[in-house]
Amino acid sequence: MTKYLKGCAVAAISIAFAGEALATEWNVSLWGKRRAFTEHVEKLAELVSEKTNGEFTLNISYGGLSKNRENLDGISIGAFEMAQFCAGYHRDKNPSITVLELPFLGVSSLEEERKISMAVYGHPAVQADLARWNATLLMPSPLPQYNIVGVGDAPMTLADYEGLAVRATGGIGKAMEAVNAVPTSMSATEVRQALDSGVVKAVAFAPHAHMSFGTVESGAWWTTNLNPGTVNCPVVANTDALADLSDAHREALLGSIDESLDHYIDTYNGATMAKWGPTLEEKGIKSITYDDAELAAFREAVAGPAAASWVADNTAKGLPAQELLDIVTGMVGSGS
């Protein structure tokens, strides 16, 4: 009887250790705070835990693991297993996906942004580009067109942007240069202090970020229809960590991406945008709307030259740049 009990105890301990061996925890590096921009990652964590009965968990950190501009570096050395970053933070490190940040691409919805981003992410040259950082692209963070909140005198015409210091990254920065503004690249977490201290006079953000990072607290005006472009901010996994997952855990992760993106878009189009108008009204922020002729001239001056320059620069780096641009432009407005 004693031997039987000992055998049961050994078996129980073995089962316990086997259970522990199956448990997987990933650290996920984000920044700021939970907001519309991170809802797909939050949903992914929820779904993965549910599908694996808690055996696979994503531990999400808002700034505790890395600075946002260093998330890709952290992924490359395996400091954490998953992260979000924006292509415009370090264009030299991820040139292939900066095609999605070109100004005036004409993307009209989050759904279209999602489809085009996923198509670009699936291109072998893009995957090889990110593989240099041991990173596998999982999903985008679709964002609407950026517009500008600023302090001081409002630029009533595009000519009024001359000399205006604007926080603008990627292609939006190129657009600002075209109207003789002075674009400045800084991370989202630095923006409020820069605006309050006068380092910049205006900030280009999507609506959720204007609310999350406080530009609406001091802003006096915003542009309703400048729509110069947006930024592309993928969520990536460390490639080695992804390969080390069990088949079941990998399927739980990858099989939850579509549902996570659905949740993200529903949240952004619903709750987030429902807050935007009332917030502007509550803060007394003046709306600036430009006429169609001015905007058409702006697009014509910026879009073509920026795209041509991007193709030339990145072809020289060995990327199939024209092919990547054609994927994007071929999908805009196509419904594909």
Results as ranks from 00 to 15, higher is better:
Tyr62Phe: 15
Asn225Trp: 03
Gln193Asp: 12
Leu44Ile: 04
Leu319Tyr: 13
Pro183Glu: 12
Ser61Ala: 09
Glu55Leu: 07
Glu281Gly: 07
Leu319Asn: 08
Asp129Glu: 09
Ser61Thr: 00
Thr215Asn: 03
Thr2Phe: 11
Pro124Leu: 10
Ile257Val: 12
Asp160Leu: 04
Ala18Pro: 01
Arg35Tyr: 11
Glu259Tyr: 03
Thr52Ser: 12
Met118Cys: 13
Ala209Gly: 06
Asp313Pro: 03
Leu164Ile: 13
Asn134His: 11
Ser260Lys: 00
Phe85Met: 08
Lys201Phe: 00
Ser61Tyr: 00
Val120Phe: 07
Glu39Gly: 07
Tyr62Asp: 00
Trp26Ala: 03
Lys174Glu: 15
Ile97Thr: 15
Val203Gln: 11
Ser334Glu: 14
Asp292Tyr: 01
Arg91Ser: 05
Asn147Asp: 08
Ala308Trp: 00
Lys283Val: 07
Ala301Ile: 04
Val332Trp: 12
Leu325Cys: 04
Glu70Trp: 14
Gly173Gln: 12
Phe213Thr: 07
Leu58Asp: 05
Ala18His: 04
Ala243His: 10
Glu251Pro: 05
Leu30Asp: 01
Thr315Arg: 13
Phe213Tyr: 15
Gly229Cys: 04
Gly330Leu: 08
Ile75Arg: 05
Trp310Ile: 04
Trp276Tyr: 15
His90Leu: 03
Asn71Glu: 07
Ile75Gly: 12
Ala178Asp: 11
Val235Arg: 02
Glu46Pro: 02
Val149Glu: 00
Met139Cys: 05
Glu46Ala: 10
Met176Cys: 08
Ala23Gly: 02
Cys233Leu: 08
Leu5Gln: 09
Ala303Ser: 14
Gln84Arg: 10
Thr272Lys: 02
Leu65Phe: 05
Ala306Trp: 01
Asp92Cys: 06
Asp258Ile: 00
Ala23Leu: 08
Thr315Glu: 15
Asn180Asp: 14
Ala36Met: 11
Lys6Val: 03
Val332Gln: 09
Ala241Asn: 02
Glu39His: 14
Arg299Asp: 12
Gly170Cys: 15
Gln145Ala: 13
Asp129Trp: 09
Ala128Glu: 14
Lys317Thr: 09
Trp222Met: 08
Met211Ala: 10
His123Met: 13
Glu259Gln: 15
Thr230Asp: 03
Arg167Phe: 07
Glu20Met: 09
Lys67Met: 06
Met118Gly: 10
Val151Glu: 05
Ala303Pro: 03
Thr223Asn: 10
Glu20Thr: 04
Asn147Trp: 07
Ala159Cys: 05
Val126Pro: 01
Tyr161Phe: 15
Gly173Glu: 02
Ile97His: 07
Phe56Tyr: 06
Ala21Asp: 01
Asn27Lys: 13
Tyr62His: 05
